[in-house]
Design a protein around this nucleic acid. Sequence first.
RNA 1: GCGCCUGUAGCUCAGCUGGAUAGAGUACCUGACUACGAAUCAGGCGGUCGCACGUUCGAAUCGUGCCAGGCGCGCCA
Length: 562
Amino acid sequence: MKDALTELLLTALAKLVDDGTLPEKPAVTPQLDHTKDPSHGDLATNIAMVLAKQAKRPPRELAALLVAALPPNSLIDRTDIAGPGFINFFLSQASNTQAIRDVLAAGDQFGESNIGQGRKVQVEFVSANPTGPLHVGHGRGAAIGDSLCRLLTATGWSVHREFYYNDAGQQIQNLALSVQARALGKTPEDPDWPSDGYRGDYIIDLANAFMAQESVSAADREITASGNADALDDIREFAVAWLRREQDADLKAFAVIFDEYFLESSLYSEGAVEQAVSALERNGHTYEDGGALWLRSTAFGDDKDRVMRKREGGYTYFVPDVAYHLNKWQRGFERVINEQGADHHSTITRVRAGLQGLDAGIPSGWPEYVLHQMVTVMRDGAEVKLSKRAGSYVTLRDLIDWVGRDATRFFLSARAATSQLTFDVDLALSQSNENPVYYIQYAHARVCSVKQKALGLGGDWTPEAGLAHLDSLQESEALTLALTLGRFPEVVAGAAQRLEPHDIANYLRDVASELHSFYNAHKVIDEAAREVSLARLALLEATRQVIANGLALLGVSAPESM
RNA sequence: GCGCCUGUAGCUCAGCUGGAUAGAGUACCUGACUACGAAUCAGGCGGUCGCACGUUCGAAUCGUGCCAGGCGCGCCA
């Protein structure tokens, strides 16, 4: 719809260039916006104000010339010149209801596009180390990252979902020592409990499973415990697999899947870390000082230079990260998006600096980052800080257990990632009009119910039959809704382009609201008025489809009854 | 002290690649079920868009400076 109107405007502009009103072909394509106020029409453009200066005419006069130059068409009912020089377009009834045809024709593919043209993009998200259950921050990352993947897929990208973790570092050593201590009957209160040990109750379960020689299989590994409490390597390996399995269970409950799990340890074992370091040395971006090897990251915009190899020999944490990203680049991902908590934002400059220093032809803004701010959980009017199981933090599993998967996903992805998020457990739990998830799902279920009733009448009481009578849709509520449905592809494309899944949640709120308004104002099934009834049925089915498609992008279910 | 994010209605938040009287939910008040799902709808109340300058025909949106909150500033990961 927007595109068709843009074409008309371009034709009109070309005509004005021909007759000398405009000195040259405008460099910008006209901007068309959906209006907030119905008295401003359905779509509006500010192009006359933008071009007023070079046309050397007042905006309103230019607008009038532009309107006069519009080719004849069936899209526009009438136009209006308003305010300082806006051109308002009032769409024809047929344009308004076109979306209904489009939706029913495309079905669950409505909203999709081929903007990505099949190009590869890798999205790394969650990337939790296997030292404990996933916390709410990981949950936010999982919800946002997964929705980003769905949005990118819907817009024609070939998406690779990756989870990166460290299975061999100091934190894992602390984990193994903690499990061993539990296996030997110690508690965190004992004086010889490992310093920096993990204190959560899950360590007890883990130790018991190890001693019972249990077998565990996670998405990317499986192992049987030796049950030998003296064998720290055995414990380490088992603990990692056990926690990976735990995390997989949580991710599965959250409907989040990955194509690949990438181990930090593999970067060492396959020499990728050493190769990256040598390349940086060879390119002259390093120097030694105080027994350590430094990266001259200030040459790439960092505040200060960073230590790469510590005096005692080990590499600092960002070095394998550089090697990892070089690996991503070498795998052919010219586009990479990392979704992570904002508390790690300081690594961005370092990793990019390291990548630049490799002289591997990597663009300076690569990879892209989506950072989410912190989540605080509120319940009964107070902040919840502890989980029984994990001890020091609220887990993703806690949230799912409390409010269910749909509400958890919706709440975690319905806000801009850049905003701190307050997760109100009581609100997410309420089965009432207070809860936006139910509000949207209710709209879907309501349509399903009406559709069932219509289909029960037999004959041609189907949404498809209504397509022949769309011109009988005349009420403002119906036309408003139809126009909103037609915006869905733009909304999806915009959310994917800006990497902002919360746009979808906001849009669905609007759709549900307009559906409910229409529904309350007009009876859908009236056997005495077949044509308009069938047309309304088609409108409802199109609405249902758009809600289902939108919820799918958020990983939220679209129930037929509630 | 430095960097990043945030500051919009009592509360939770949209709007932020500049556009027309600043939106939604919630809370509060008033109405609507002998109707296909009232988990709904209609109406009302409620805002110096943190503050101040600046750019612009036009600023919540862009720039600068303050103020407030969060996160990060390790030879920890």
